[in-house]
Nucleic acid binder design. Structure first.
Length: 302
RNA sequence: GGUGCCAUAGCUCAGUUGGUAGAGCAACGGACUGAAAAUCCGUGUGUCCCUGGUUCAAUUCCAGGUGGCACCA
């Protein structure tokens, strides 16, 4: 039988954690988290890291393994997760991956182009340029350095332009030359499962979950990292809104409502990404038995 | 019980000197290749409370009704 990675996706708050555990237990396997925020050890309540009992019931990877002060991104995840999978597949026929970060999932399943890591100084210099000259300054520079990418990039998106520029400047080669758009092939089979439910139910789950986070002490957790509020890892729903509250820009109630809204919007953004992926087979959150039956059947095909 | 004010999008409201309507918020759709819980783009979704009258034409004017609010009893 071919080694298989089961990828469980779904919008935030739908219940991926518990379903993934059921699947992993059924296959006596382990879980890889593909979540760009649950990797940070300083965060737990706001990122909805699995409960202690859940973590004990099944071995999890990439949960609170890195610091918010480290550089972390989809490419690092791809590298680390592939290495880990190599080990796991020596012990298991099946491994489960779950998490909401679609770019990370994509990086692992299809690969991400091989692009050098950006020097901090180059990025900082470009951010400065962006602040003084605005988007137009960056655009102009990109048009000169990499007209090919200029023609296809979203010219209103500063991050895209900034990234293309920093790569081009650092390597001396246009960013587009690194963009192969090739799918990497993996030495294992991938089966994608999605869980979702109707929008109203999803939203009430999300709103409830935020209330529970607050009861568990989200505000205290946010306070503990408040002094680092500028860093990217803390540009995160559940924290950035509370930072605004700490700064006195909004009230606590407003912050809570904002967290709920931004979480709902995040779920929608995830769903928009999932819709594009026709290889996902969808189920309702409580259908874990059906999911396992489906997976058993699928695995027995070969 | 009386008087006055109000009734328009999911919410708060604007508006149409009569030609079936628009802002904010919410909501919805999309993009996405090393910051991705990030970043960016796009979309009004409507029995204009109900019934009747005037009119070529009523969400708009008139009358009545219903509901809400305020004040007086």
């Amino acid at each position: 039988m071919k080694k298989t990675l089961i990828v469980l996706v779904g919008p935030t708050g739908i219940g991926k954690t518990s379903t993934a555990i059921k699947i992993a237990q059924h296959f006596k396997s382990e879980i890889i988290s593909s979540d760009s925020r649950q990797v940070y050890k300083e965060l737990s309540i706001g990122t909805a890291v699995p409960e202690t009992e859940e973590l004990q019931s099944c071995k999890h990877h990439f949960i609170q393994t890195h610091s918010i002060h480290e550089d972390y991104n989809a490419s690092i995840f791809e590298f680390e997760a592939l290495k880990l999978l190599e080990n796991l597949f020596q012990k298991h026929e099946v491994v489960v991956m779950t998490g909401g970060s679609m770019l990370y999932i994509d990086a692992l399943c299809n690969g991400i182009d091989d692009i050098p890591t950006v020097d901090k100084e180059i990025r900082d210099a470009l951010v400065k340029k962006f602040e003084s000259e605005g988007l137009d300054g960056l655009r102009l520079q990109l048009k000169k350095i990499d007209p090919e990418y200029y023609a296809e990039v979203d010219l209103k998106n500063p991050k895209r332009i900034l990234h293309a520029l920093e790569i081009s400047i650092m390597t001396g080669k246009p960013y587009s030359s690194f963009r192969t758009k090739e799918k990497k092939t993996r030495p294992f089979r991938i089966i994608k499962i999605g869980i979702n439910t109707d929008r109203q139910a999803l939203y009430s789950r999300i709103n409830q979950r935020v209330d529970i986070m607050l009861q568990k002490g989200l505000i205290e957790e946010a306070k503990n990292v408040y002094s680092h509020k500028g860093i990217n890892s803390l540009n995160t729903v559940g924290y950035k809104e509370l930072f605004s509250f700490f700064d006195g820009e909004i009230s606590e109630d407003e912050a809570v409502e904002l967290i709920k809204k931004n979480t709902r919007n995040y779920a929608r953004k995830q769903l928009s990404w999932f819709r594009r992926d026709k290889t996902i087979t969808w189920f309702e959150p409580e259908q874990s038995d059906e999911i396992i039956n489906y997976l058993d059947a699928k695995l027995n095909e070969n």
